[in-house]
Design a protein around this nucleic acid. Structure first.
Length: 574
DNA sequence: GCCGTTTTCGGCCCGACTGTTTTCAGTCG
């Protein structure tokens, strides 16, 4: 699977061309192509073998030739040549806030600066102020930018940024001159990590809102403060941008700042072709200069003849083509979820009793909840051996007789051992309603071994779900080496479901993989892997990932009622 | 570089903020 590698190369070509001062539209063409390939719902090599590279939106003759060369020989000559023409560290200079391609190029030409370290030294030695257009202020800003870059190289996970952003929004909403306020940007689109937080507000007195905003508790630095726009950095390192507009401009501004950039560009091109101009202030007819009324985001789309595109789909612009052709999916919502099929109780490493978990599920309006405690090899988690599991089945039977309004399903999260076998016998698994199989050990196998290990588990006639299929922990542990194409193919063949683990540390499967799985007819299940009653609330994160994967409720196992679900589970079909 | 029920050539989104160059380019989203 070379999609991501190719996307990375094309994006780098875009950056290198930009550093060389190439035609900006050529730069954009490479970036668009990179994005298209990154989000492509199948293996680029398969498309190539069919001779259909040119049918990918954004790939024309020139790019097709370069990709063909790269896939046939492993080398892209054009890329190699570009890399030779510029020092390798130059590209990272543009990661410093305030340093773009033009400045990076001049710093290289005039001061011989080739990387971050040299830029930092030049600032400290006050050599930048001798470059035309730069002064002492620029040196300070660049130094601060380098420091931030070094301290916080990673993006912030959704699960960390969202609560912070919600808190800020609540605080702004209470400010008297604020009329409306909402989260925008990549956070609203539900991306798994975000570089910053964007907030849009409406007010008749923007200056007062700016004053209030830059005094937010926990502000470490004010990066910019204009009449209607300000940027701050919180002590935790998270940057927050606020934009304030008039209340009648709020919907247009919300759409604009939700992005993505590529989505906005594509939508505005479409608008332009219809004689309209879309900006964050609204929509105007170019010939008359007359503004159109925009009360909601749906009005923005309606102006160019499109149905409203949900924020989670606004990524590379291909969603606009889908909308034009009536191919937008009816996305799953949290309300469609009928139960959670992967939770832990105090019987293994969970915090709460089975009854407490069941009542918490009932409170959330669920029809069922599966108790899937660990299996014996996970001794640190007090995994259940067959006899304790036996006791648990009796306990669940008792609770089911006693509790109304919620059905407790029996289950377990069984370990997939190094050789692909499971650490509970088939006779036991056969008696459970739901079997989740997961990898928790020997995570450093090579790709072939790890893939076959998981494939073996999927071929077990009792395994319904593969839990957190790539094992990643955001920001802490890389996914294990696994051939996702093959996992998806075998899942389709065996009727095994793949999990979107909703824990914000995991979000595993991720959006792109879940989208591939759906397109191959694999059923997805969204589970929280909750270890406490509160953990059940993380379902919302999983639903966000599913929406980004274009899933509807028909694609998701736990949107089924219990009778439907039973009929879909492997043992239930017998 | 790509793309085409206005176009196979000539387009390719739109505006705020910063620093500093007295009039705007570069950067950012």
């Amino acid at each position: 699977m070379k999609n991501l590698e190719l996307a990375w190369i094309l994006a780098e070509i875009g950056d290198l061309l930009e550093l060389q001062g190439e035609n900006p539209f050529k730069v954009r063409a490479y970036r668009r192509a990179a994005r298209a390939i990154e989000l492509l719902p199948e293996d680029i090599e398969a498309v190539w073998r069919r001779g259909e590279l040119g049918r990918i939106e954004g790939i024309g003759k020139a790019l097709e030739e370069k990709i063909d060369e790269w896939l046939s020989t492993g080398v892209m000559t054009y890329y190699e040549e570009l890399r030779r023409q510029l020092p390798p560290g130059l590209r990272e200079l543009t990661r410093v806030p305030g340093v773009g391609p033009k400045l990076a190029q001049r710093l290289y030409q005039e001061l011989g600066i080739r990387n971050l370290d040299e830029l930092e030294a030049a600032c400290r030695e006050q050599r930048l102020r001798h470059v035309k257009g730069l002064g002492a202020r620029s040196e300070e800003n660049i130094l601060r930018g380098i420091e931030r870059l070094r301290r916080q190289m990673e993006r912030f996970p959704l699960g960390l940024a969202l609560p912070v952003a919600q808190q800020l929004v609540r605080a702004l909403a209470e400010f008297p001159s604020v009329q409306r306020v909402a989260i925008a940007g990549s956070l609203r689109r539900g991306r798994e990590t975000v570089g910053d937080v964007d907030i849009v507000a409406s007010s008749a007195d923007p200056a007062s809102v700016m004053d209030e905003f830059v005094r937010t508790p926990g502000v470490e630095q004010v990066l910019a403060r204009g009449d209607t726009k300000a940027s701050i950095v919180l002590k935790m390192g998270l940057q927050v941008d606020l934009r304030v507009v008039r209340d009648d401009q709020f919907a247009a501004a919300l759409h604009h700042f939700t992005g993505s950039k590529e989505h906005n560009v594509a939508l505005r091109e479409l608008a332009q072709a219809k004689g309209l101009k879309i900006s964050e202030y609204g929509i105007v007819r170019v010939d008359e200069g007359e503004p159109l009324a925009v009360a909601t985001e749906a009005d923005v789309f309606a102006a160019v003849g499109l149905p409203c595109i949900p924020p989670e789909l606004r990524e590379d612009g291909s969603e606009i083509a889908a909308a034009r052709e009536g191919r937008l999916p009816a996305l799953i919502t949290l309300g469609d979820i009928k139960g959670d099929l992967h939770v832990h109780s105090e019987w293994s490493d969970g915090l709460h009793s089975i009854e407490a978990m069941a009542l918490a599920a009932r409170e959330r309006g669920y029809e069922y909840i599966a108790i899937t405690d660990h299996s014996p090899s996970l001794s640190v988690a007090r995994g259940l051996d067959p006899s304790r599991l036996e006791e648990q089945l009796e306990e669940i039977a008792r609770l089911n007789r006693r509790l109304d309004g919620i059905r407790i399903l029996t289950g377990c999260e069984v370990d997939i051992l190094r050789d692909g076998s499971l650490d509970l016998p088939d006779e036991i698994l056969a008696r459970l309603d739901v079997v989740v199989a997961s990898v928790h050990s020997a995570m450093n196998l090579d790709e072939a071994e790890m893939t076959e290990r998981i494939v073996a588990a999927m071929r077990n006639p009792h395994v319904d779900i593969i839990g957190h299929p790539t094992g990643r922990i955001l920001g802490r542990r890389e996914p294990y080496a696994v051939d996702m194409e093959r996992i998806i193919a075998v899942a389709a063949e065996t009727g095994t479901c793949l999990e979107i683990n909703a824990s914000p540390d995991r979000l595993d499967l991720k959006d792109v993989h879940a989208r591939w799985a759906r397109e191959r007819g694999v059923m997805i299940v969204i589970n929280t892997d909750a270890h406490s009653t509160d953990g059940l609330d993380q379902m919302a994160y999983g639903v966000t990932v599913a929406r980004r994967a274009w899933l509807g409720k028909a694609d998701v196992l736990n949107c089924l009622s219990w009778p439907e679900l039973k009929a879909r589970l492997k043992d239930g079909r017998r």
